[in-house]
Design a binder for these strands. Structure first.
Lengths: 142, 142
DNA sequence: AGTACTGGTTGCAGAGTACAACTCGCGCGG
DNA sequence: CCGCGCGAGTTGTACTCTGCAACCAGTACT
């Protein structure tokens, strides 16, 4: 395989994945959209953060994040807390309910993804995961 | 790394990629949405196919594909041709203009993606591409 | 012929998104 | 202290993508 070819394959296959993920997310978990899920996931991973951080990480407009967070707060999955240091910022935190839902969805998603990865060797899994992390670690969007 | 952990990382990182891809696609090529781009790409790869095939491959509803294709036809990037064998089906083909645009976008996208992959070894690139293909080859959506 | 199936279009409704304009709070140079 | 710019977040608006359901047209099997 030539280098440009591999790059193109990577880009094409990532996109296929993206489309299918969106589709299956809606079907499997009507209660939690893919966007909401990823936002909650980020909150859990970072143990709380600002709306702006979410926007930056997912290359979303701050207005989009604002609305998503508002919805998540309405359904009681996240909680906002004023930063005592700076009254402009709101620290976003998972509520107990949020943590619970996220756990459930994660389990069933892991099952779905795990099914396709069932016959992969542990070595391949780790290498694949490592490649993805490395790819996304690049600061610029792409 | 434990197996479930790797699976979760894979799923999370793929999603991050998906979100960023969407964002940058809209910014870099206002003339060709990410969806349109992928559809054109598929048409090129397969050298023409039916709308239903596109829907199945990207886990999209046929109505969505129908509309996307209609738009692409309106802008002269694809051409529909009645299948003489079966008058229900329309074979979709890239026009010359479509092939041209696709080429341009592919080049600039490859540049953007290639930048992040610039310092990867050829071996890693190929292995990464191989993993993605293998992942997506699974018949069920996920 | 009649029934079931397939490919595709259209009406509708909802989610996600960006952009622009705005408010509010912080910090800095007069 | 005051005004000015900046950063965080919200709201108004408009648009795209999407799925579902209802539908039409053509095919296939009996």
């Amino acid at each position: 395989m030539e280098a440009g070819m591999a790059v193109e394959t990577i880009q094409r296959e990532m996109t296929v994945f993206a489309r299918r993920a969106r589709a299956s997310a809606g079907r499997l978990h009507p209660e939690l959209s893919l966007v909401s899920y990823t936002l909650l996931g980020h909150l859990e991973e970072r143990d709380g953060c600002r709306a702006t951080d979410l926007a930056a990480h997912y290359a979303l407009d701050k207005s989009t994040v604002s609305r998503q967070v508002a919805a998540l707060e309405r359904t009681g999955l996240v909680e906002r807390r004023q930063d005592p240091e700076d009254h402009r910022v709101q620290v976003l935190l998972l509520t107990e309910a949020g943590r619970h839902i996220l756990g459930q969805v994660t389990v069933s998603r892991r099952a779905a993804v795990g099914e396709r990865l069932a016959d992969w060797s542990q070595e391949d899994l780790e290498r694949f995961a490592g490649y993805l992390v490395r790819y996304n670690a690049w600061p610029r969007s792409g």
